[in-house]
């Protein structure tokens, strides 16, 4: 990313443009792990699912339906379900405070300085801790699966080729 900033593609101004808070964001957020994680917290508080603690294994009869699944089902069938409402409410003031984000983007417009540090700045530590906890997968998973599946196709074509000779 640092390299991309140096090359100015995309420029920092573009990357932090307020435009990014449009409909695309809304659509992405609905699918996002951030929202699903917020939902999971809500579902635990509501007693819908049990939180798994390290060392405490699930009993055989305990439900293994994931919070993600319930989230998807509710989103499809009951978009105004109270737990989804709570999720949106929590998300709006928690990790995804769009209002604050918007005003910050406006405030910092044209004032962003990019500086490469040789170590992690203290203010960046919370962000660094989040790395790997949230994944942004869209096409990426499909791409990796395609890559794996192509191996068999190539192999099959290879066998066909040898047989033909």
């Amino acid at each position: 990313m640092g390299a991309a900033f140096r090359a100015r593609t995309p420029s920092l101004a573009q990357l932090f443009d307020e435009d990014m808070l449009g409909d695309d964001l809304e659509a992405w957020l609905n699918e996002s792990f951030l929202l699903k994680r917020t939902f999971r917290t809500c579902a635990v508080i509501a007693g819908l699912i049990d939180q798994r603690h390290p060392g405490k294994e699930k009993t055989g009869r305990q439900v293994t339906v994931s919070a993600d699944l319930i989230y998807d089902v509710l989103r499809m069938h009951e978009p105004d379900h109270i737990l989804l409402e709570a999720t949106r409410h929590d998300a709006a003031t928690g990790l995804l405070d769009i209002g604050r984000l918007g005003s910050m983007l406006k405030r910092i417009k044209g004032h962003i300085t990019h500086r490469r540090l040789d170590r992690i700045s203290p203010l960046a530590v919370p962000v660094m801790l989040e790395i790997g906890r949230e994944s942004v997968h869209g096409e990426a998973h499909d791409f990796l699966l395609t890559e794996a599946a192509d191996e068999l196709i190539i192999e099959a074509m290879g066998i066909g080729h040898t047989a033909g000779e």
């Binding site: 499909d142 699966l145 395609t146 794996a148 599946a149 191996e151 068999l152 196709i153 192999e155």
Partner: peptide
Amino acid sequence: LVAHMLGRDRIYSVRFANLLG
């Protein structure tokens, strides 16, 4: 053994030995 995995709109067929890359 081949795993024919269910994808969004297609099947991904992967040999068991190749699953973990």
